[in-house]
Structures are given as C-alpha cells and as structure tokens.
C-alpha cells in the first residue's frame, strides 16, 4: 500500500476519534486470549487455586508445561507433517493453476466459458463440505491415512486459477509474442515470463494457501489415523481432549503456543508482506 494514497484518508475525518479509542479498546480485548495463553503456559501451578485465570504472570515462570506438552505429543513430527502438507499442496497448486490460468488468460478454445464457470463452482463447493464422499474416494485411491490423501482434494484451485488469470492478463501480450518469435514454447512462456511477472499474486496466493492448510482440522482428522501422519491441528486436538478426566490447562496452553508460534513468528517477520498479500487477494 502506498503512503501517498494513505494521506488522502485523514483519520479523524473518516472516523471520529471516539471510534478510534473504541478500536484501541477492542484491540486490547482481541489480544487477551493470547495473553492468557502465554501467562498460563509459563505458570508453574496448574491446579492450586482459582487464580489459574489470572493474567498477571507468576514470579517464577517455568518451562515445565512445555516439557510436558512436548513429551506428551510428538510435536516435532506434527510440524514436519504440516509443513509437508502445506508445501505439497502449494507446489502442485502452483503447477495446476498456472497452466489453467494461462489457458484462460491467453488461449481461445471451444468451451472456454463453460469450463471457466465449471472451475468457479469450486470456489463455493469447497472439498470440506463434500467430506463424506471425498473420504471414500481417498480410500479407494489407496490414500487413506496418508499425507497425500490430505492434500489431494486441494490440488486444483479455482481461487488460485482465478487470481493468476487476472495477473496474467495484465502482462503485455507483446512480451509473449517476442518470445514466440525467439522460438519459445508455452512452458517457457509460463516459466520465464508469466510466473516471474506475477510474483505479487503468486505470493499472495501462497500465503493464503499455506495459512488455510496450516489451520485445517476436520479433513485431516478424517483422513489420518496413524499418529505419525498427524498434522499439528489434529495432534493438538487429540492432545487437548481426554475421555474421562480433567485437563491440564497449563499444558494445553503450552501445546497451543507450540502450534501457533511458527505462524506468529512468520507474521512478526513478514508482517507487512503478509497483510499486503491478504489485501491483494481481496481484489477480485
């Protein structure tokens, strides 16, 4: 976002400063759950008193909760699985969507409009709603309880295709013509012209895709059985719930912290890019 543009929006004029005060108050409320998670994760006394809910940190913070969380569940393995799932999905998505986006942006072929609308259906009919038949398909393909089974329904992406098609359309067609004269083939065009020139859209899509699949729960819960194949969300959920007993809130807080920390760190580092990517994605 450009600062020049911002200047056009004098803050006080759009929202009275009372509104701004309200937003500050809400922002405080917004981070309270995180605050509690942090404080509770480092709190030594798990059950002693009713002060478990206190947001004031203890004088003697402890790592005991983290140790117990780390030992109770194989978080390292869950991380690897989640990374593999997010990475695998993204890689395949980039291939399928660039090909499709190029076709929709630059090629003319029979049924193009119909196919485009067929693609768009997936914007709404997200795989999760179809979880029952999808689970059956995954099992029939022999992908039950595999990471590939978790990934497969997401390999085609209407959203990504749509986003990339728009980006491709802004690229001057003269570039392509010049390359064609030099003897380039379609894959050269996509790899060396379209993709490099669509980096912002690609990045925006990548961030959204990774965030979505990092956070996904229900589908991997259905597909995965073996603990070795569990992603973070499923690992965390099985870890936070027992059948007949009490829960160790400090350990749960520590486990939750372990799960979300990488994304929070990533966000802290790439904050601006993150937010801009999300913003860019919003522009249809």
């Amino acid at each position: 976002m450009s600062r020049g543009r911002d200047a056009a929006l004098p803050q006080g004029e759009i929202t009275p400063w009372i509104g701004f005060g309200l937003v500050v108050a809400l922002a405080l409320a917004w981070c309270t759950p995180f605050l509690w998670m942090l404080v509770a994760a480092f709190r030594p006394d798990r059950f002693g008193s009713s002060a478990m809910a206190s947001l004031i940190p203890d004088y003697a913070p402890t790592l005991a909760n983290f140790v117990e969380a780390w030992e109770s569940a194989d978080f390292a393995r869950y991380y690897l699985n989640t990374i593999a799932i997010c990475g695998g999905i993204l890689l395949v998505q980039i291939v399928t969507m660039s090909l499709a986006a190029y076709a929709f942006a630059r090629l003319k072929f029979p049924g193009r409009n119909l196919l485009f609308h067929l693609f768009l259906i997936q914007l709404m009919l997200v795989p999760i709603v179809l979880l029952v038949p999808n689970l059956r398909t995954v099992a029939q393909l022999g992908l039950y309880d595999t990471l590939a089974g978790v990934m497969a329904p997401y390999f085609a992406t209407a959203f990504g295709t749509f986003l990339m098609r728009q980006a491709f359309q802004t690229i001057p067609v003269e570039l392509e013509e010049a390359a064609l004269i030099d003897g380039a083939r379609w894959w050269d065009l996509i790899r060396h012209i379209y993709l490099p020139l669509s980096k912002p859209a690609l990045l925006a899509f990548s961030i959204i895709s990774v965030t979505a699949h990092w956070n996904e729960f229900l589908w991997p819960l259905m597909v995965i059985n073996s603990p070795d194949n569990r992603p973070l969300t499923v690992g965390l959920a099985t870890f936070t719930r027992g059948a007949e007993g009490a829960q160790a809130w400090g350990v749960i807080a520590a486990g939750t912290f372990l799960v979300i920390a990488p994304l929070l760190i990533g966000f802290a580092v790439f904050q601006r890019r993150f937010i801009n990517s999300f913003m860019a994605s919003g522009l249809k």
């Binding site: 117990e68 109770s72 009490a246 829960q247 350990v251």
Partner: peptide, 11 residues
Amino acid sequence: FPVPVDGKLAR
C-alpha cells in the same frame, strides 16, 4: 487406544 486422563498416560 484412547487416553482417559491426560498426556502422561499416553507415555
């Protein structure tokens, strides 16, 4: 196996 009480039992 389900775990009835807490993570310790899984271990």
